[in-house]
Nucleic acid binder design. Sequence first.
DNA 1: CGTCCATTTGAACCCGTTCAATTCCCGTGG
DNA 2: CCACGGGAATTGAACGGGTTCAAATGGACG
Lengths: 240, 240
Amino acid sequence: MATKKNIKISCAFCASKKDSLFSDLNKDDLESLDIHKSCIMYKKGQTLYYEGTRPMGLFCLNSGKVKVYKITSDGKEQILNLAKAGDFIGYRALISEEFYNASATVIEEGAICYIPKADFLSILNNNPRFFKRMMQRLCDDLGIMEQKLVTIAQKSVRERLAATLLMLKESYGLEGEENSTLIDIALSREDLANIIGTATETVIRLLSEFKNQELISLQGKKIKVLDPQGLVKEADFYGI
Amino acid sequence: MATKKNIKISCAFCASKKDSLFSDLNKDDLESLDIHKSCIMYKKGQTLYYEGTRPMGLFCLNSGKVKVYKITSDGKEQILNLAKAGDFIGYRALISEEFYNASATVIEEGAICYIPKADFLSILNNNPRFFKRMMQRLCDDLGIMEQKLVTIAQKSVRERLAATLLMLKESYGLEGEENSTLIDIALSREDLANIIGTATETVIRLLSEFKNQELISLQGKKIKVLDPQGLVKEADFYGI
DNA sequence: CGTCCATTTGAACCCGTTCAATTCCCGTGG
DNA sequence: CCACGGGAATTGAACGGGTTCAAATGGACG
């Protein structure tokens, strides 16, 4: 077992900065982030935080992928969000000074920075532009969550799976030959089911049907989208 | 048909103020709200705004009740939120300067104030404490929405109905004799179904079962909770 | 008092779950 | 290098919760 090694990554020169909420911080603020920041490699399966614990800082993904999820009283998992390079995790609990109300676990290993609570809140309170940016982000998150709620409440599993594949294609798509797109994220079938809110077996069966319809192809556990238009049709029951 | 009459209600003396986000505004800010504010009576069925339109101001309920909902492509309605006296509606679209992504319709008549966008944004931008308060509110909303998502995705209709009745009891409960609580909101069975994400008939059947179990009683379309503990058990499949 | 919509009840159907069995894949140790 | 073990993925089959369609009843309101 290798020792966890602190990696030196300056926020100012972080390759993921351009995608992140920190993208328009000034030089001073960025440097202040570096002072107490830590950054270590996380392996698949490691958990960044558990629901019910108190946030002490902010996670920022330099690389790797993380799922954010809640566990119900009867032990089922519901994935709320997937995070990739440049994404923050756990800012809501930090801002509202409450306990985490979800857990976060690494699904693809990567370097993840940790900015102590005090440093983050200091920038938040002293940089109105950043404050506004966070507010905007919360508004966006809320809109996304509302849309997810409607989809889960009103669409069939088949439609939700098609919609989820399209969403994953947008976020994790790697263009391939002949208009095909590889969904480049190591999601297990179970994870996929826990995004959609269904049983693993149902996901497997529907994926197999989509494959027979030549909407997708399966390369091991990775999925390649062959016919996005076809998926759009599947996603909208009475669509255009 | 009566003419819409502008009602004079001062924010500073609004009976609902103590419950609202405006509760700790100072005197000057409150008075500035009154200048351009309008306030009229809305009847049941009237719509405050439609999804896809541009917000021009903020709705604040002095009295009455409003449902906020989205309509899916195949015409189904999903209720996202219920608002009552003291509640704001539509602040998210206003803050993030986007189109409404839900519609709002009156379900119980009441007086509803309308604060022009400029006045609201002016207070937001010049009163850091209020800004923080809004941020906090957005965080809370997001947490609530996430919990709803998990519940709809992972719980049975029966459990969701029980949970919804308990939620309605908290928000709209009127204590009655013998530990019973009347849920004082004029929700149709269809509305209730559209909160839970199920069919109207299913709601009716389950309500009837709950009545037979003596968890609730039905008084016309209003529901009285007789055994909240029993409902808690129904809400948690593998509860405590 | 009649009309119209909401509510209720009935019954058939089907989507999705659940349980069970098999196969596949991958890392690990002999 | 290959056999082994174990979890993930797949397939099969039966069950059941919930939807859908249809019809009857009730209740509000003009």
